[in-house]
Design a protein around this nucleic acid. Structure first.
Lengths: 334, 334
DNA sequence: CTGAAAGCGCTTACAG
DNA sequence: CTGAAAGCGCTTACAG
C-alpha cells in the first residue's frame, strides 16, 4: 500500500503541487491563496490522512528536525532521566531525538557521530569522551550546533552545560570534615573523563584546605564496565584493610555496589561512619539509614541544553559558545 | 561548509555517479567494475571523509534503517533497560532507534505514530495503550512491521512479546499463601493496560484457587501520573485501616513509593509481613531487609523483539504474527 | 491568485 | 566494463 504524496492531493484538489505545499506549510496567506482553495485542500488532506514525507522535506530543506543525543548508557538512571527531560522539551519545540549509547568506546562514539552526520541531524547533544575531539571539531567547523553536557572537553571551544562537579565534591568532603571525620575514602572509576577528574580534584582540594594529608590508599579507582561483583570485592578490601570513617562514592552505580559491599561486611552507617553518593538514586532515600547524595539539577541542565540548541539553530551565523556551569545540591539525609 | 556529495566524488575520480554508487554499495564486483577504478574511488572516499547522505538514500530506496520505539517513559528503569538492550542489538544489525515517550497519553501516542510514519521508519516497537488500536491497524494495513511489547492489545492481530504477567502474579500470591498469609493486599494502578489487568487477574485467581475470598478493600488502585506523595498517603491509609500480612506491588515505582510509606509508618517487613515487587529494581536487593521481586527476562524480551522485527523486515510478503509469552521469574530474597 | 520547473543526493533499470 | 537519465517527494525562486 503506497502512501499518499503531495501530488495525489494536488490531483484530487485539482490544483498544483505548489499550492498544496504552500497550504501545508502555512504560507497560504502570505502567498495569497484564496480561501476557497485553502478550505478545499485542507478538507482533502484531513479526509485522506495525508502526512508529508519528512524524508523528502529534509532532503530539500537540508534540516531534519531531529536532534542527535549521544550518551554513555541510556540505562544509567542519570542519563535516562536527562534523556526524558530533553525529549520532552525538544518535542514541545517540534524536534525529535535519536539517541545512542557509546558505552565509553571511542570507536563507537566516532561511528555514532558519523551516523548522525549522514542522517543530517540538526544538532548534537553529546556527553563526550576523550579521543573524539577531532570529530567534534569537524562538526563545529561544518557549522553544526553542538552542546556537550555532563563532561567537558577542555581542549575544545564548544558550548557546554554541566554541574559544578568540583565544588559539589569539595562540599561533600567539607561536610565530612565538619562532622569530625579524618579518614575519608573515595571510590571512583578509572575513566579519564572531565567530570570524574573534577570530583577527584574536589576531594583532594578539600582535604588539603583542611590540613589533611592526601592518602592514595584511601582512593579506589574501579575499572569502568567491570562487573558489580568485582567492585563489591574491591570495596570490601578497602574497608577491611583500612580504618575509614567516611566515604564518597563518585557515581550512583558505584554507591549501589558499595552499599552492597558494606552490607555484606556488616559495616554500619551511623554517627561513626558517613556516606555520600554522587548523583542521587531512588535506592538512597529508601535505604536504612537514608543515604545523603549530591543531586544534579537535571531539569535545569536539560532546559539549558535545549535553550542553547535553539539559540544556535536560530542564529544562522557562527554559533556562540556558552559554557554554563550549574551548582549541584548536596542533600543530607537523616 | 557544504558536505561532499556523490557527485563531488565522481568528478574527482573522473568516473560517473553510477560507478561511485555501485562501489559504495558493495556492488562493484557484481557490476564488474575494474579493480583499478574500485581502488581509485575508495581511496578518494577515504581521503575526503565522504559519507553518503542517508536522507537521499532513504527517499530513493524507501527505507530508513531506523526503528521507531514508542514507550511509556524512558526514565522508568524497566523501559530504559529494555531500550538499552534493543538499541544495542539493533545497532549490531545496522539499525538505529528513534524513541519517544507517550506518558500514557493517547493523543501523544497517536502523534508519535504519525511522526514516525512521516519519517518512514522501517519498523515500530510499541508498548501500547488502549485507544490507539486503529492507528496500529493502519500501520499493519500499510505493511509495516509492528511489534508490541510489555502490554498487548487483544483486539488486534499483531505480533507481541511480553512476560507472562498473569502467572508471575499468580505465583507471587501463591508464594504468600504457602507462607500462611491470608490478608494479602495489592497496590496497583488504574491505567487500563493489558499487563496491569493480567497482574490483577493473577492476584484474584490465586486467591480464589486457594479458597480465599477476594476483598475489594485490600486492593488500592492509584492514579497513573499522580505524584509519589499521594501514593505514599494512599498506601499508609491502607495499612493503617486494614490488617495486612502480605502485599504485592504491581510495578516497581509503586513498590518504591510503598516502601517509603511502610518506612514512615514503621511497618516492619519480617516473618509476619511479606512484600513482593513486580519488576525488579536496584533498590530492592539493597533494602533492609531485601525485597523479593518478579524479574522480567529483559534480555530475552529484547532479543525476541529484534528477531521478530528482522524476520518481518526480511519477508516482503504479509508479515507473520507471532505472540511470544516469556515466563517471568520470582526472585525470593532473604 | 496560481503553476511549471529546477533541484536536494541518492539508486537502479536500461543501454551500449 | 561504464554512464546517462529517470525518479523518490518535497520546497521555492520565478513567471505570469
Amino acid at each position: 500500500m503506497k502512501s499518499l504524496s503531495i501530488k495525489d492531493i494536488a490531483v484530487k484538489a485539482n490544483v498544483s503541487i505548489t499550492t498544496v505545499s504552500f497550504i501545508i506549510n502555512g504560507k497560504a496567506k502570505e502567498k495569497s491563496i484564496s480561501e476557497a482553495v485553502i478550505e478545499k485542500v485542507e478538507k482533502i488532506i484531513a479526509e485522506s490522512g495525508y502526512k508529508p514525507n519528512q524524508i523528502a522535506r529534509s532532503l530539500r530543506t537540508g534540516n531534519s528536525n531531529i536532534i542527535g543525543l549521544i550518551i554513555e548508557d541510556i540505562s544509567n538512571s542519570f542519563f535516562s532521566r536527562i534523556a526524558r527531560l530533553i525529549e520532552d522539551k525538544a518535542y514541545k519545540r517540534g524536534y525529535k531525538i535519536i539517541y545512542s549509547s557509546t558505552e565509553n568506546s571511542v570507536d563507537k562514539a566516532k561511528e555514532l557521530i558519523n551516523m548522525f552526520k549522514s542522517r543530517k541531524v540538526d544538532a548534537y547533544i553529546i556527553s563526550p569522551i576523550k579521543g573524539i575531539e577531532e570529530d567534534i571539531q569537524m562538526l563545529l567547523d561544518d557549522g553544526n550546533p553542538v552542546i556537550l553536557f555532563d563532561r567537558n572537553l577542555p581542549d575544545l571551544n564548544v558550548s557546554y552545560v554541566g554541574a559544578d562537579h568540583f565544588n559539589a565534591s569539595y562540599q561533600s568532603i567539607q561536610n565530612f570534615i565538619d562532622q569530625g571525620k579524618k579518614n575519608i575514602a573515595l571510590v571512583t572509576t578509572d575513566i579519564n573523563v572531565e567530570q570524574i577528574i573534577e570530583r577527584f580534584e574536589g576531594y583532594r582540594k578539600a582535604l588539603e584546605d583542611n590540613g589533611i594529608t592526601y592518602n592514595d590508599e584511601l582512593v579506589v579507582k574501579v575499572h569502568f564496565n567491570q562487573d558489580e561483583q568485582t567492585t563489591i570485592n574491591q570495596v570490601k578490601d578497602l574497608f577491611n584493610s583500612k580504618n575509614i570513617d567516611a566515604v564518597l562514592f563518585a557515581t550512583n552505580y558505584l554507591a549501589i555496589g558499595g552499599l552492597k559491599a558494606l552490607k555484606q561486611i556488616n559495616k554500619k552507617i551511623d554517627d561513626d561512619f558517613a556516606v555520600i553518593a554522587y548523583d542521587d538514586h531512588e535506592a538512597f532515600e529508601l535505604h536504612t539509614p537514608s543515604i545523603s547524595a549530591v543531586q544534579q539539577p537535571l531539569e535545569e541542565i536539560a532546559e539549558t541544553i535545549i535553550k542553547l540548541i535553539l539559540s544556535q539553530l536560530a542564529s544562522k551565523s557562527k554559533s556562540p559558545v556558552d559554557q554554563v556551569i550549574i551548582p549541584a545540591r548536596l542533600v543530607i539525609r537523616d
